[in-house]
Amino acid sequence: MQSWIPLVPESASTFSWQVDALYFYLSGVTLFFTLLISGVLIFFVIRYRRRTPYEIPRPIAGSHKLETLWTVIPFVIAMTMFGWGARIYFNLYKPPANAIEVYVVGKQWMWKLQHATGQREINELHVPVGRKIKLIMTTEDVIHDFFVPAFRTKADVIPGRYTTLWFEATKTGRYHLFCAEYCGMNHSGMTGSVIVMEPREFDDWLSGNTGGTTPAVAGQQLYQTLGCASCHGANGEGGRGPRLAGAFGKISPLESGQSARVDEAYIRESILNPQAKLVAGFGPIMPTFQGQVSEDQLVQLIAYIKSLQASGQPAQAASPAQAASPATAPSPTRNLR
């Protein structure tokens, strides 16, 4: 899978050209210095070859001027590389707020993906072109890495954490998805494809693939069966436990006097290790659910809690049609590039 430029992979995301441009700059500088040094070296080696066996050349101590020159010039060039690379990196790892979210769970040796609208996929990810997609990723076992060369981005997928990766595809097609962190026996088989489609086609694909409940609805069911409702209220309005409706994204005051932002990782920790960060005003009565919920189920519980609006209405994401809306609505703000 190559682009029309030789030796560069296909470009299919908004990052591709940015990374390629930097790559060309780095390659140019590398080529220049490698040729310069080998050129000078070869010239000296020929010009100053030993002509008679006993000649002794005149010693030269050195030159502070030259030393300064070849310290400062490389440093300045290095700083341009640093600044340029850092700017792109900042965008690469700062997911925009309004992206379509897809949950990814890695597992030896497959990728399990689930769209907010419920569709599940294995080793394939269908996304619409021109939309920002944010992957919320974790793994059931060892570290993996979600790598799409055509998008010029990757991120490790780490057990016990949520990592995110975002991109906006610019070209329809089918692109390699690789696991780029060695994960055991079938690491090289943990590959798949990202399929970028026209938005209309993508909608068709979505509607042709319903069947599954959305993560939020599945989470709602879990919320009931695991008994969360008995403390947090049937719709997350609170009770013996704190109010969960509308909590996502807010700052939660802690018993310790500190505070914590309620994000995916925090909810995960609250469920698996509730005593780690006690919410102010509540006792340590929440039991741990470690060992009772799988990574998939955690993702669903999180999706449910995220879907609970301050009104306490869980129905928001429960309807697939509504949950799908971000996918079809145009993104209100463009990411500054």
């Binding site: 990374v19 990196y89 690469l92 990757k154």
Partner: peptide, 22 residues
Amino acid sequence: TVGGMTGLFLASLATDVHLSDT
């Protein structure tokens, strides 16, 4: 020289994201 210069591709954040573990 080649080894060191290509190290700069990996020290540079954006290119390293694409290149790491390749």
